[in-house]
């Protein structure tokens, strides 16, 4: 009787031990799989950096630092310089941000302070849907609807308005093509608007209600509460959102490719066609013959990668600071 039960117990112990061991092994396998996947994310970014450096080596070793300061881009003589695309990228992104930031903050204030509660969610979703529309849609819309509209109405009016005013008349010099730097900037502004809005709205929501209510309590108006309490409290977060939008604008490809005109030159006028780094790559990469041409385009990609990496890292750093403050 006892012998039988002892045997049963020991066999139960054995299966139990085996099960525990099996559990330990599967757990370790699963754990390693998750860890390797997490590391793969790092490997991806490292791989991007290494492959870009390797691909751009030929052009960078031939042109050296002058690649950054040369305006000429001549596939026939194989003389390449990145100045015009860099100029176009920075100018279009800067104008886009200048336009999108005030509007984005305005929408965020509207959503957090003014909007009737039942409308808040639908409008917030609608603005975020703008962010989901693929960039090629903005491109085709910009080329066939927006650019002709600018060409026939807005641009002639601006040219007429600033005629004869020194500085401004060369900034807005004709002829109105429709496509060009300004059109690209406007399209980019529309595209980064949802990013800036949704982040600004999120950081506005982190302001403690007590802070705002005490300001309202001493008689501040909604604008004063926004200007003196909400914005100072969330300044870092808003900057993070702006940088994130800037990162998007700098790297945006398809929409800009449609409306920028793809001209490798630097013009004073914002109405003139230009080019950006990403538009140059998108337009010319598959047609590039010769290793030096391809390598020059990859070098452009490397420059864009470095610029956006710095901007995005700054953005994340600023947003992290807001997060850790609300977490504490």
């Amino acid at each position: 009787m006892t012998a039988v039960s002892e045997a049963a117990t020991s066999s139960a112990m054995r299966t139990r031990e085996a099960t525990v061991r099996r559990f330990a092994v599967t757990d370790m396998v699963f754990r390693t799989a998750t860890r390797l996947s997490a590391m793969l994310v790092l490997v991806l970014l490292g791989g991007v950096a290494i492959s870009l450096v390797a691909g751009s080596w030929e052009a960078l070793s031939k042109f050296g630092f002058s690649f950054l300061t040369t305006e000429s881009w001549n596939p026939v003589t194989e003389n390449f310089g990145a100045l015009a695309p860099i100029y176009g990228t920075i100018v279009t992104s800067a104008i886009a941000i200048l336009i999108a930031v005030p509007i984005g903050i305005g929408i965020a204030v509207f959503l957090t302070e003014l909007c009737p509660r039942p409308l808040r969610r639908p409008i917030g979703i609608a603005v975020e849907l703008l962010a989901g529309i693929p960039s090629i849609i903005y491109g085709i819309w910009g080329l066939f609807v927006f650019a002709p509209f600018l060409q026939t109405t807005v641009q002639p009016f601006i040219i007429w308005l600033f005629k004869g005013i020194p500085g401004l008349d060369s900034l807005f010099a004709g002829p109105p093509y429709g496509i060009g730097l300004l059109t690209s900037s406007l399209i980019l502004a529309i595209m980064v608007l949802p990013f800036i809005t949704s982040i600004t709205k999120d950081v506005f929501d982190t302001v403690p209600a007590v802070l705002k209510e005490s300001a309202y309590g001493i008689g501040c108006t909604t604008w004063e509460v926004t200007r003196r309490v909400t914005i100072p409290y969330t300044r870092v977060g808003i900057m993070g959102g702006v940088m994130l939008g800037l990162g998007r604008a700098l790297g945006e490809t398809m929409a800009v490719t449609f409306v920028i005109g793809n001209a490798h030159r630097i013009s004073a006028s914002l109405f003139a066609p230009g080019t950006t780094i990403s538009a140059t790559i998108a337009n010319e990469f598959t047609e590039a013959d010769g290793n030096l041409y391809t390598s020059s385009l990859v070098s452009l990609g490397l420059i864009l990668f470095i610029i956006t990496f710095i901007i995005l890292a700054l953005a994340r750093y600023m947003l992290l600071r807001i997060d850790s403050r609300t977490g504490a």
Binding site: A38, M39, V41, L42, L44, L45, G47, V48, S51, L52, A54, G55, L244, G247, R248, L250, G251, E252, T253, S278, I281, A282, F285, V298, G301, L304, F305, T308, F309, L312, A313, R316
Partner: peptide, 22 residues
């Protein structure tokens, strides 16, 4: 990983294209 992932999330997709090309 979180930091790098957030950067990958908003990195220009044309850069990913160049990477896969290489």
């Amino acid at each position: 990983v979180r930091f790098i992932n957030d950067i990958l999330l908003s990195a220009p997709s044309i850069i990913i294209g160049l990477f896969v090309y290489e």
